[in-house]
Design a protein around this nucleic acid. Structure first.
Lengths: 228, 228
DNA sequence: CGCTTACTTGAGTCTGGTCAAACGGGGTGG
DNA sequence: CCACCCCGTTTGACCAGACTCAAGTAAGCG
């Protein structure tokens, strides 16, 4: 699914990487307001990106899965404008901020790929904004669960055959701009309709197509994507 | 305010550009689902980016002002996932899609700048998502008007001394995930509090600081930005 | 002068929020 | 081994912010 790298590119990326970071569920990888000198690529596991209001209201802005870059904004714009927290055990590939420019110079194609990844993130954010701004609670939940499942299955975080998503309802609520209570009631209703089930480990999807139909959302074409 | 280009870069960008596009208020510059072979930089005027649900619900996702790229997603991902419409008379600089890769190869620094711009857009989207998901109607309106004013003043679209923003309440509503009626009532209340005034041409800001305080939002540091 | 576009306002409704309490499983320390 | 606690889920009652419907105003324009 990922674009294959040339030997040359591979060698450069290898020299570029500064090590691996392992994180556990709940670990904060990046903190809003900090100036972390690193940039990461997710290798395995997943995380969520969020912002806080001074009084504690939280908005989950997106999720990060294998192939996604974490901390690019901080690298380019200075200070982090959001935080990132692991949702599972995960491994990340660590790069140095300063060397990003080096990558652009040495391998323009890889630079292009970085932009590609940023652009895709932007596209997902647009979609999230549409959901939070204009969909009903039921549609939102169907959308988010459907979209997470799709991305997770593509990147190998979840098993496509047996879609089980370990996530709390609080997190779904914060990603959808809903209250926990209302999220629960809505989720319960989707379960009653036979579209999903809640187990101890999270949400088990029974009918992905029906969810996406409710959300009026289709996954984009699954084109080959770059990986750095 | 923009990063100065070297003579070399300037020459390349000049050869890269394919002409200028002039648009009038209301013109559609890009259409969701289309495959436009062009990429644009806004030179003057402003526009908005939006997405539609099949039943017509509309979400304005962001605004585009001088220095912003329009159509980058389409260039990298294929088909446009959103539409763009002019909010004023505007001029755009036209580039060919295919040549973007050429730019990366010939001038890595400019490639880096493209990523920088995409990253900033992402940052604004995060902020919008936070607003739509977690702020009250009053906070949202204060945020959006404050943020538009800030960006508009920075890029010379509006006069910083006499902040007058020609925008309809319907558009504000669609950007904030609110109904037109509720937006109007909220706007009216802000006006009653002496923070702004509605004239025939749009919204006239009287107290930008107070608006930003209500929104619990501060404009980021106004760093030098790239321009392509 | 009629048409259109945008803004206003009021009345009534409803989706989704808040508050409060209880449940259930897993871990842990006595 | 059990009591307790913590975390996440669940439910009910009540409230309110925001939506819909409807109608009216005001300005700009052909």
């Amino acid at each position: 699914m990922f674009r294959p790298l040339s030997a040359d590119e591979l060698a450069f990326v290898s020299s570029f990487r500064k090590g691996e970071l392992h994180a556990e569920r709940g670990d904060t990888i990046l903190m809003e307001g900090s100036r972390n000198p690193h940039l990461y690529t997710v290798l395995s596991g997943w995380a969520f990106r969020y912002k806080l209001l001074p009084d504690g209201r939280r908005q989950v802005v997106n999720f990060a899965m294998p192939g996604d870059l974490v901390g690019l904004q901080g690298t380019l714009l200075g200070e982090m404008q959001h935080s990132v927290e692991a949702l599972s055990a995960m491994t990340l590939c660590v790069f140095e901020r300063q060397e990003l420019m080096e990558l652009y110079r040495a391998h323009p194609d890889l630079g292009y790929d970085v932009t590609w990844i940023a652009s895709r993130e932007e596209c997902i954010l647009d979609e999230n904004l549409l959901a939070v701004g204009r969909r009903t609670a039921r549609e939102r939940l169907a959308y988010l669960i459907g979209a997470i499942a799709e991305r997770g299955a593509d990147t190998g975080v979840f098993d496509r055959e047996r879609l089980e998503i370990p996530i709390t309802q609080q997190l779904l609520a914060d990603a959808l701009g809903l209250s926990l209570v209302h999220t629960n009631k809505t989720a319960r209703r989707l379960a009653a309709d036979g579209l999903l089930r809640w187990s101890e480990r999270g949400c088990h999807i029974l009918d992905l197509d029906a969810l996406q139909a409710i959300a009026k959302w289709r996954a984009g074409p699954n084109t080959r994507r770059p990986f750095i």
